[in-house]
Simulated assay, not measured.
Amino acid sequence: MNGKTKTATVFRMVMPDHTCPYGIKTIDLLKRQGFEIHDNHLTTREQTDAFKAEHGVETTPQTFIDGKRIGGFDALREYFGKAPATKGEGETSYEPVIAIFATTFLLAMALSWFSFQSLLTIQTAEWFVSFSMVFLALQKLQDVRSFSTMFLNYDLLARRWVPYGLIYPFGEALAGLLMSAKALPIISVPISLFIGTIGAVSVFKAVYIDKRELKCACVGGNSNVPLGFVSLTENLFMIAMGLWMGASAMGWIAF
């Protein structure tokens, strides 16, 4: 702007019982972009409705730069060349899975350091898989009925016996917890092998044979994670962990 002070005018809801969070984000974004801000508070519902009617908009906040209306928070981000803050309805994302796997790996390393003063050990790998099973089960258990409904889209056993979709996350959680403690492998190993194998076959058939485009229920029934590599990996992890823990319990592996 050729050295001129950059200014923006913002209209946002600041009421006694509600302050619009996107209004706060708008102010913060403009400050970080070096703008001086004329911050106009809409303090009543009537004032907010009148503003919307005057400018022909459905939402606030609204930002104006150089007398031109930019729009809401997402429009402002786009104006500055940034990605939208909110994903579109139905838009796929791997972020939930990345967050879970990253957190469980860091947690496994932290406990390994506490126990063995080393970040990367065999125990780190075991904890990473078992913690991931527990965290993924927790996502499913937040709304187990939604999970079981999405699960019916592709799981071969759940399609034949519907209650399996409700039981599955409890089994995954139980196996993960027991494996984390290295307790009762006679229970955890069969559960892990059973649900992992059924899951892997179901996903492989749905994605790679039938070529179906589905959402994965691996992080809950309301997720937008595509069915495919992630869900197959979850099931292969359970199979590998079951085989590893079984071999360890039988004394075939010593370390």
Rank of each mutant, 00 (worst) to 15 (best):
N2Q: 13
N2S: 14
G3N: 14
K4C: 04
K6A: 03
K6S: 03
V10T: 11
R12P: 01
M13G: 07
V14M: 06
M15P: 11
P16C: 00
H18E: 01
Y22K: 10
I27R: 00
D28H: 09
L29V: 08
L29Q: 04
L29G: 04
L30K: 01
K31C: 03
K31S: 10
D39C: 04
D39A: 03
N40S: 08
H41N: 14
R45P: 02
Q47E: 15
T48N: 12
D49N: 14
A50H: 11
F51H: 07
K52T: 06
K52A: 04
A53D: 15
A53P: 07
E58Q: 14
T63C: 02
F64Q: 03
F64W: 15
I65A: 03
I65T: 07
G67H: 02
R69A: 01
R69N: 04
G71Q: 10
G72S: 13
F73P: 05
L76F: 11
Y79T: 04
A85I: 07
A85R: 03
T86G: 00
G88P: 02
G88D: 14
S93R: 07
E95Y: 09
A102K: 02
T103V: 11
A108L: 06
A108K: 05
F116R: 12
Q117R: 12
L119I: 03
Q123F: 05
Q123C: 01
M133P: 01
F135P: 10
Q139S: 12
D143T: 02
V144G: 02
S146M: 10
F147Q: 12
F147T: 15
Y154R: 05
L156Q: 02
L156C: 01
P163S: 07
Y168M: 11
Y168R: 04
P169W: 04
F170M: 08
A173V: 11
A173Y: 12
L174F: 08
L174K: 03
L174S: 10
G176L: 07
L177Y: 06
L177G: 07
L178M: 05
A181T: 10
A181P: 06
K182S: 12
S188P: 09
I191L: 12
I191E: 10
S192W: 09
G196F: 12
G199V: 06
S202C: 06
V203T: 13
V203I: 14
A206V: 03
Y208W: 15
D210P: 03
K211G: 00
K211W: 01
K215C: 01
C216P: 02
A217W: 11
G221R: 08
S223C: 08
N224R: 07
L227H: 06
F229M: 12
F229C: 05
F229G: 04
F229H: 10
V230T: 14
S231N: 14
L232P: 04
L232Q: 08
T233N: 02
N235K: 00
L236N: 06
F237S: 05
F237D: 03
M238V: 09
S248A: 12
S248H: 13
S248E: 14
M250A: 15
F255S: 13
